[in-house]
Design a protein around this nucleic acid. Structure first.
Lengths: 239, 239
DNA sequence: CTGATGCAACTAGTATGGCAGTTGGTTAGG
DNA sequence: CCTAACCAACTGCCATACTAGTTGCATCAG
């Protein structure tokens, strides 16, 4: 909890200074946990965090409350607050929720159709992703992945659905960041995006939802191997 | 904000006194908002709530943070905190999320099958509901409804899915309590539960998910009529 | 009488201080 | 040397105090 302070400070400065402190702290800590800057098992002392960012403990607490609701940290009263280790169970449950919602989203998109403006945005996002493939900018690629899914959800006017997906995505993204710098199958993910979009455009509900399912299961293929290679990042599961 | 104090006090005493104050406040306020004890549009002063329950503002704030994440209240900085009016958009979005998840749950239950213990519990719940039909205890009926859906989700080991459903249920339940004391179609709801369970038992994925869909859409049939009859409970939608 | 302006009484946001419970090392006893 | 009891140093939880921003009413000018 020393070398990483500078990294946290950078994230802190990226947040908009006019926002409430508790919000900024939430964003910073969430990002830090997902990006494996704060590793699973790390203890997060309220006092220490407050001193790190030169704020009081009150807004820190509120940020921690929200993070514990996301299932990223665990607050053990009178003992300490800890970054939760990745749980295979939680990740698979998160996938179930995400699959259910996002498959419903693309079905709706295929049946009702999307606004021309939305389709334009989606196509543009795919073009950007294709460019990322050639430049090898996988960081940007994944941000565009999030945008793609977000745009789909908003395209069928389901903002709440997106909020839920964004919440459970945290579990996914930790696994993803853990697998860096493995060669991730970005090409495959891109192809799947294309498949999803074309299925929607030809009003193929079944095809679109199947493509989405395959897409969402792709990320977790490497899960068992990761659990073996980095066991201390994962919760000790009962045998 | 006076006559209702006694009602809130009762809810307060029902909570377990050993739990953290912030948790108890969250439960009480959540229940009060859902049960329309705290009506849409009501202003919730942190100070006032703190005095009502003889606690400090700190745990009140933490409860309010969680409630605002559920979409039940809105915190407007330096102005006040308000119980959100029911929004048709939000309710329909909540239904979409719930439908997506619960249809996926029953599909999984039908394909993988449920443990005998779980099936027993479900059948017992249905029997209890049937008894409620004769005694006319609709309050208990709806608690059993929640248990039924909860048991299904846990039966396929999807605890996270249930948490999400429980979250969006808040939007549903406000509409339900608003429609009391209308004669609600409890018989129909019971029949739908039976239909869902039998479909699961005969491994009929499609039938189970269809039954669940009909079931979830039943509650909101009265929505348009309610919006006309009690317009001040609903958000002013753009024309 | 109507309008704008300024002040007082709110609000939520933040900071700080004191509390009880847990923990791990240390010390006293076997 | 080993074990058990104790104590100091943490932890998160709650209460209180203070700050900054908003709002509405009262007051004063036109």
């Amino acid at each position: 909890m020393d070398y990483m302070d500078t990294t946290l400070q950078n994230l802190w400065k990226e947040t908009t200074a006019t926002d409430p402190v508790s919000q900024r702290l939430y964003q910073v800590l969430r990002e830090a946990i997902i990006r494996m800057i704060l590793l699973p098992g790390t203890m997060l002392s309220e006092k220490e965090i407050a001193e790190t960012f030169a704020v009081s403990r009150q807004p820190v607490r509120e940020a921690l409350v929200r993070l514990s609701e996301l299932g990223l940290i665990e607050v053990r009263p009178q003992r300490g607050t800890f970054v939760l280790k990745i749980s295979k169970k939680m990740v698979l449950e998160a996938r179930f929720v995400r699959e259910a919602i996002e498959m419903a989203v693309v079905k709706l998109a295929a049946s009702k159709g999307l606004a021309p403006k939305t389709l334009d945005n989606l196509h543009e996002l795919l073009e950007c992703q294709q460019r990322c493939l050639t430049t090898g900018d996988s960081d940007r690629f994944y941000r565009l992945d999030e945008d793609f899914h977000h745009t789909l959800a908003l395209g069928v006017h389901q903002q709440s659905a997106w909020k839920v997906v964004k919440g459970v995505r945290a579990q996914f993204d930790r696994v993803r960041y853990l697998s860096i710098p493995d060669s991730s199958p970005t090409h495959k993910l891109y192809e799947q995006h294309v498949e999803i979009l074309t299925a929607i455009e030809r009003k193929d509900e079944q095809g679109a939802s199947q493509a989405m399912q395959s897409h969402l299961r792709e990320v977790l293929i490497s899960l068992p191997e990761l659990m073996e290679r980095k066991p201390n990042m994962f919760e000790d599961e009962p045998i």
